[in-house]
Design a binder for these strands. Structure first.
Lengths: 251, 251
DNA sequence: GCAGATCATTCGACATCATCGAAGATTGTT
DNA sequence: AACAATCTTCGATGATGTCGAATGATCTGC
């Protein structure tokens, strides 16, 4: 691992939180201000960071947006999901989301890569790009059940977030048994959902899920069937050999 | 400028094009494969790059999407535009876009940060995150007219793209005189548009524009008025002192 | 089924290059 | 007007990234 590159990524990570002064970044990263300055200067040259002209503070730059957009455009999982999501949304009346795992050193999260709005014509915020702790949402639990073991802390998002490792393990066992993960107001108040894993040729590729307001919860069995059918269809298109995918339970 | 961080950014830039093998990246960057390996390994650890399990090739990773999303969420220009875009789209019947400049060493481009679909109910691809050469689109010309002088080459996108620096300079003079930039099939076949600069407290902040199929071109004078009014309103909300913004014609 | 090629990865020595602390410049504040 | 808090620059030090060659794995073609 190259030290300066690692530090540059840490700089971007802290800037994910909020705009910051150079000194604050240096303190947070426990580095000399001049060291951080050299790094951010390089990032500024590439558009990854911008410096506000008035305050001198730094924030993320437009080049990050371009990178994220390229990632989305080249993601086969997203393209395959896009072909099936409208019908799934129509059949279930729910919004449809797809996500891929974002496994970092100490954090297990999911990032939403596709979003089909609820088919009721209301105006909904596109949620592509948002990141959710894996243990707190159906998409994440579908990934954890068939992916690596949960590790790290389980931060609480709402009153119903599962924060006990044993309770989470029990929940994941249910997911493995049925192929379907559920979540009720564990990440966002008023939001519930189901999710199923997606397989590709190499194993676990992501997850697809339904999201509904708590008023529509629990979802009818027909929605579960539609979700499972769609997950199986998308997985086949992705080259997945089996569904649910084989459990790759290794660190 | 820190060498290894600069190289890491170049790696990401190369991966913007397409997935690649390690050797191909090394050749393109004129570096030793082992050097690139150390860099990409570090980027992989942070989720900025992923390695395809089967082929060993590298592609951009999900962390790029998160960064881009955070950038969007914290962009005040986007939030202000979002407040005015629906009405502008309704009044003009056009799709509305907003963009910010992406000024790198040798490339002058714009990146779209907001997109309000054409209000005809058709299904349209959200174009947030796409990057367009500044000289080839109305948004870019609105930025170039009130920003730094054009530099670098003028790549051709369509048969009507302005590739002659003198012709571009003449066009930009017209933009400065009227505050409105126009473009007809210069970036994408069948797409035309208008754009106006957006000012904030520090000067030029971005641009807002209308996009219409060529069948709706030219747009009526009422659309020009609506666009100018909106640009002025957004600029005032952003703290802009004057509209159009003062011309900061310095490299 | 074997040989060759191609690729990612590891390793170690060298010298470059990033790091750090202090000083300078600029701005906003009391 | 003096102070405080910024960002920024600079130069010496040695830690660290770079490179080339060797290794191992994978795939291709015969």
């Amino acid at each position: 691992m190259i030290q300066s590159v690692d530090r540059a990524m840490r700089v971007l990570a802290v800037l994910r939180g909020r705009r910051m002064s150079l000194g604050e970044m240096a303190g947070r990263l426990d580095l000399a201000p001049s060291t951080v300055h050299g790094i951010v200067r390089t990032l500024v040259d590439h558009g990854m960071v911008v410096q506000e002209p008035d305050s001198g503070h730094y924030r993320l730059g437009p080049a990050t947006l371009q990178l994220g957009n390229v990632y989305l455009d080249t993601l086969e999982l997203r393209a395959r999901v896009a072909g099936w999501a409208p019908e799934l949304a129509r059949r279930t009346g729910c919004a449809v989301r797809a996500a891929v795992p974002l496994l970092l050193a100490d954090r297990q999260e999911v990032v939403v890569v596709a979003h089909e709005p609820r088919p009721d014509g209301t105006r909904q915020m596109p949620e592509v790009g948002i990141v959710i702790p894996a243990h707190a949402c159906a998409l994440g639990k579908a990934l954890l059940a068939f992916g690596p073991d949960p590790s790290g802390t389980l931060p609480s998002m709402t009153a119903d977030t599962i924060t006990d490792p044993a309770a989470l393990a029990a929940d994941l066992a249910r997911v493995r048994a049925t192929g379907i993960a559920a979540e009720a107001e564990e990440a966002v108040l008023g939001e519930c959902g189901l999710a199923a894993p997606l397989a590709d040729a190499t194993g676990l590729a992501g997850a697809i899920g339904l999201v509904t307001p708590v008023s529509g919860w629990p979802l009818p069995a027909s929605a579960v069937d539609a979700l499972r059918d769609t997950a199986r269809a998308v997985s086949r298109e992705l080259g997945g050999a089996a569904w649910p995918p084989a459990e790759a339970r290794s660190a």
